[in-house]
Design a protein around this nucleic acid. Sequence first.
DNA 1: TTCCGGTCCT
DNA 2: AGGACCGGAA
Length: 232
Amino acid sequence: MPRKSIPQARKPRSAQRFRRLLLAWYARAARDLPWRRTRDPYRVLVSEVMLQQTQVSRVAEYYPRFLEKFPDLRSLASAPARAVREAWDGLGYYARARSLHALARSVAGRGEAGRGVAKLPEDPQELVKLPGIGPYTAGAVASFAYEKPVPAVDTNVRRVLRRVFLGDAGRGTGDGYIWELARALVPKDGKRAWRFNQAIMELGALICRARRPQCSQCPVRPVCRTGKRLDA
DNA sequence: TTCCGGTCCT
DNA sequence: AGGACCGGAA
């Protein structure tokens, strides 16, 4: 029994069409970003932590340099705090760097000496226990690194889902409901889930933006409760 | 000058 | 529930 009653989000009628339109658009409009070219859990993790409060253009600049200095979990774990802080300098929110460093130390130190390489958990429930990893990043790592069919809801995703499926009624909708909705929409196949999660975030970043959404160019407008009645 | 954002802490 | 953390963009 759930402790709280989160209003049950069932799969909307237009779910299938939404996914089709979204993925077709993503196939032709997606930006080619470095972290979309890897499934290495460590690299995915670093990109997601950097992207937490920092724009894509800035992360694109720091991400390769950081990975050059710390190419894997082990090298990050054994680095001095000052070196990590320096590699992070300019990104802001330095608690993220400290958490990431602590995470590396804890994960790398977990395995038996000499045996298997340190490995990040695959399960979001385990990932959220690590420092600096909340519900969003846990879902993102599970999906983008391990191709698990789980949702990853950041503010982009939250905004898109609200506008498309809830319309004006969605203003006061709680987090739990949005996550349930996302769970109902994510394809069960991991590779499709990967593309779906990337695509819905890309839509939120490029088209369904917080201010001045570009409804006239939106691929899912035919199924959107908000955009359908807006003028171009 | 105001707004924006995941996670952590209060 | 509400603010702190930072730096860029509106």
